[in-house]
Write a protein that binds this DNA or RNA. Structure first.
Length: 628
RNA sequence: GGGCCCAUAGCUCAGCAUGGAUAGAGUGUUGGACUUCUAAUCCAAUGGUCAAGGGAUCGAAGCCCUUUGGGCCCGCCA
């Protein structure tokens, strides 16, 4: 926590100064200063204005004088600003040394928040009946990025993907295959998940609208799916696993990986529901309705103005939300684990092992994928249902904030993009719909970006081998998608536009990746390995010190981001870091300058930057090409 | 009818949690910088009644209340 050192020093010293003035327990701020106001600022004098009956500027003057008498190593001096702020100027010789040497350690940016406690992050959880679209991608990238950040914050993260393989959407494509004559082989090399989503699913649901009598078939298939031993269920298992494999391919391609796949069909067959139902009845969290509109149902009472929620229908079957309750309790480790675990048949591209639940105990391994805390990434349209689950879990495990619904706004299509898909929206953005075939698939966006990047990279690097161009283009395409999905606040709607979202300039991943390529090139051309045994006092230019400062803020950003489950904080940090480097790059020459000691110091700085941008972009799952 | 979210520059967004200095980026438009460590870059200009109104405060883009505009959710569907 490098820059934190100077903040800590100032905080301690300020407290000393205050206690000499017989002032205690003042909750003042000490934070990195705005440009032009020194290096660190504190609002302490504002907070004392009333108590001391003096204006803030006078108080700042007083404290500043006191401060300059204290022992300080990282601060050169403090200064009272006429506004009342107290500004501090850093001892950059020492701070450079501290920040730059620490940034060379593998642990740089690591913060001890989680203390290795297990935490569950569930994301993706897409019905296995279609290809992933750009809306799913927001969920997936948020989940994956949060997982990476929590790992950096010392949590033991278990990443889960819930496979809803027995719901209505799956039933729909099964009906398509078994009743409407869709071939099991997709036409001309189409990916199977795209075929199921674009053709089978869309056209099958269309038929329902034309002929309501088909509803009967659909209901029967759904019923057969829940009974695991039926032929329909076995057939559905084959189909959904094929789709799932394709979906995972898309995820892996975007550098997203998991620890365990949980299948809904197995949760249903495990009998977890009846156990949790008994518990709910015992704890009086559900009540049986004798009359009224929900007569014959078991309901959860809504608090205040909320409506009661039916969880068991009058025919005895569980509703959608009810299926989520045992899973939520399982994730928190509140139930005896009925599952065994086996390796997923396909390996993930990184070293991470992928497991899947099974009810078959022959030769399988025991694992614990539960967590003391659980984070479920689902879009905010489900907020109401998630609140019911969260409330229940809080009653089961009486520790607050252990079950968190991490909600986010949806991705919509711009009017122009909707038009290219054949929908006229009169200039308005529009929600995507899998059922109507109104979506932009993740694979197609990736392909478009990759093609664009291949051309750009080939143009810039005529001597580059085509497989290297391919790799660069892959990394840039993935980076662009991931950055676009993470840089906005979670509660901002992202309007996806096929043209505008493919930009590679400005506040984008390629901009940041490009700074890494620049840094790599300098280090490569220097022809030697960098040392941290250099004269840091030679780094005096504003753009040099700004870069050092930004590097030093990495840990603070990680902490902020992890505490608030706010992945965009890291995206902003990466961007700020890249801007600092570009400014340094434009204003200072590193190689071929007369002062060799300065060259050494700058090389050290470039290397620190390179390591830090690699680590911070890695938190976003974005790779850092050496050339591009 | 009830609930959740959003509103800051022409456009897309930071800043709001934890009130304090001169409200910042990108993009767009206009001009400038490649014989130099890669111009996916940089520099400059342009652009703001922080939706409106009220309140508490020495002090509000930020906190509280109201209103307006926009999005979403409220089934014995999933």
């Amino acid at each position: 926590m490098t820059f934190q050192s100077i903040l800590d020093e100032i905080k301690n010293n300020l407290n000393k100064v205050l206690s000499e003035m017989s002032l205690f327990d003042i909750d003042f701020s000490v934070e990195p200063a705005k440009p032009g106001f020194g290096d660190v600022s504190s609002n302490v004098s504002y907070l004392l204005a009333k108590q001391l009956k003096k204006n803030p500027a006078q108080i700042a003057q007083l404290i500043s004088e006191g401060y300059n008498k204290t022992q300080h190593t990282l601060v050169l001096k403090s200064e009272a600003h006429s506004s009342g702020y107290l500004n501090f100027f850093a001892n950059w010789d020492r701070l450079c040394q501290l920040i730059l040497s620490e940034s060379h350690l593998d642990t740089f940016g690591f913060v001890e928040l989680g203390k290795q406690s297990p935490i569950v992050v569930e994301h993706t959880s897409v019905n296995p009946n279609k290809a992933l679209h750009i809306g799913h991608i927001r969920n997936i990238i948020i989940g994956d990025t949060v997982s990476r950040i929590l790992r950096k914050a010392d949590y033991k993260v278990n990443v889960l993907n819930y496979i809803d393989d027995s719901g209505l959407q799956v039933a729909d494509i099964i009906v398509g295959f078994t009743h409407f004559g869709f071939d099991q082989e997709p036409p001309n090399d189409k990916k199977f998940d795209h075929y199921c989503g674009d053709d089978v699913y869309v056209k099958t649901t269309q038929k329902y609208e034309e002929d309501f009598s088909l509803e009967e078939i659909r209901k029967n298939v759904l019923k057969e799916l829940e009974n695991g031993s039926s032929e329909t269920a076995k057939f559905a298992d084959i189909i959904t696993r094929k789709v799932l494999a394709n979906q995972l391919e898309t995820c892996w391609n975007l550098s997203v990986t998991y620890d365990c796949l949980n299948f809904e069909s197995q949760i249903i067959r495990s009998g977890l529901w009846s156990k949790i139902f008994e518990k709910l009845k015992e704890m009086k969290l559900v009540e049986f309705e004798n009359d009224g509109k929900n007569a014959g149902c078991w309901v959860i009472r809504g608090d205040g103005k909320e409506e009661d929620k039916v969880i068991v229908r009058s025919n005895g079957t569980a509703t959608y939300i009810a299926k989520d309750i045992p899973y939520a309790a399982w994730k928190l480790g509140l139930l005896d684990d009925p599952f065994h675990y086996e390796k997923y048949p396909i390996e993930q591209p990184n070293d991470q092992k992928l497991w899947q639940t099974t009810l078959n105990d022959s030769g399988s391994t025991e694992h614990d994928f539960t967590g003391q805390k659980v984070i479920t990434v689902i879009d905010s349209r489900q907020a109401r249902l998630q609140k019911i689950i969260t409330d229940l879990m809080t009653k089961f495990k009486s520790v607050p904030d252990t079950y968190v619904h991490l909600g986010y706004e949806s991705v919509t299509l711009s009017s122009d993009t909707a038009k290219t898909l054949g929908l006229e929206t009169e200039g308005k953005q529009t929600q995507m719909s899998g059922r109507k075939g109104l979506y932009v698939s993740a694979d197609s966006v990736y392909d478009l970006l990759k093609e664009k990047t291949i051309q750009e990279t080939a143009k810039r690097n005529p001597d580059m081998r085509s497989e290297d161009i391919e790799t660069v283009a892959h990394n840039v395409a993935v980076g662009t998608i991931r950055y676009e999905m993470i840089k906005y606040d979670l509660d901002k709607i992202i309007t996806f536009d096929l043209t505008k979202s493919l930009s590679l300039e400005g506040d984008t991943a390629p901009y940041i990746q490009y700074t890494h390529a620049r840094a790599s090139r300098i280090l490569e051309k220097s022809g030697r390995s960098t040392s941290i045994d250099v004269d840091f006092s030679l780094l005096i230019e504003k753009s040099e010190l700004d870069l050092v400062k930004t590097i030093g803020l990495f840990g603070i950003s990680v902490k902020d981001s992890a505490n608030n489950l706010s992945p965009k904080v890291i995206a902003r940090y990466c961007y700020d870091l890249a801007v600092s480097f570009n400014s340094f790059y434009e204003h200072n020459k590193v190689l071929g300058i007369e002062n060799k000691k300065l060259e050494d110091a700058r090389l050290c700085l470039v290397n620190s930057f390179k390591l830090t941008i690699e680590r911070s972009l890695d938190l976003l799952g974005i790779a850092t090409p050496d050339r591009m």
